[in-house]
Nucleic acid binder design. Structure first.
Lengths: 149, 149
DNA sequence: CAAGCACTTTACGTTAACGTAAACCTCGGC
DNA sequence: GCCGAGGTTTACGTTAACGTAAAGTGCTTG
């Protein structure tokens, strides 16, 4: 097998600790992106994996970050926007009040964004329903079998 | 006033007919985009206004199209995707069964997309809640007044 | 030890969706 | 008659988010 991939999750003791690590290729397949994408995200300051020699080693934390990043992308956020939130999230423990205020602002803004998207989705859903209804009507009017699939 | 803009909506009779037209600048302000954007959408086959001489004249239909286009954009659809749906919607009356089938396929796909986005939004919402909660905790721990806004 | 595979860096290429600039027309008002 | 506000075309520039190719490193497997 060509699977000498990641370190085992169990130490001699046997407790399934979170010491699981991932290679860049693993993460890539896991999220259906290319390694290039993951490296690019690192270059953009969204990931900061460790290095074993020259090779990148990703931990759970990195995996979660990547997941959040991709989710943000699906919602149409730019990498810059995503970074802004993710980095502040990480910088939280230092507890700079000013930064936290800024973070809350950003969060409120993102929330507004999501609200608008939700409304857009509802509207779009209706439009699609209309189009589909009309399409089926025309189809049945043609004497074709209405696809009940 | 520099408002010699669009033709009136009422003819001699007085019925508020839909004969309202818009200039490119009007639409631009209305939707907070630039004229360039609107011209670009036309070039991409999303709009097809009439011409009075050389000047573009937009009707209600065009306004609606533009609205749908921008909504689609907010949802992360590419102009190509939007065009695919919008154009088929227009081509519907001809009633080509094959095209209609294709349209239904596309609609189903868009619908799936929307579903995923909804789920993403729900998840993202939770994350934001978490982050905000933590931020407020840290803030209050600092002795600062928790902003009750 | 040679092959192969996964990783690395560097760097140039690409696509979508416009922005921006130049140079022109045209119309109503003073 | 000219000016300014809007409209027009043409064309090159820009940004984000990667793709792609080249050339090298390091392990392990036959």
């Amino acid at each position: 097998m060509t699977q000498r991939t990641a370190s085992a999750a169990t130490q001699s003791g046997g407790l399934p600790i979170q010491r699981r690590t991932y290679s860049i290729g693993e993460l890539a397949k896991m999220f259906e992106v290319t390694p290039r994408t993951i490296r690019f995200y690192e270059q953009e300051g969204l990931l900061a994996p460790e290095r074993r020699g020259q090779t990148r080693v990703y931990r759970e934390k990195d995996r979660v970050r990547l997941k959040l990043t991709l989710r943000g992308k699906r919602l149409g956020f730019s990498l810059a926007e995503i970074r802004e939130v993710v980095m502040m999230y990480d910088a939280m423990p230092d507890g700079n009040a000013r930064q936290l205020q800024r973070l809350l602002e950003i969060l409120a803004e993102k929330r507004d964004n999501l609200e608008r998207q939700l409304e857009d989705i509802r509207l779009m859903h209706r439009e699609l329903d209309d189009v589909e209804t009309r399409a089926r009507e025309v189809l049945s009017g043609l004497g074709a079998e209405p696809p009940k699939h």
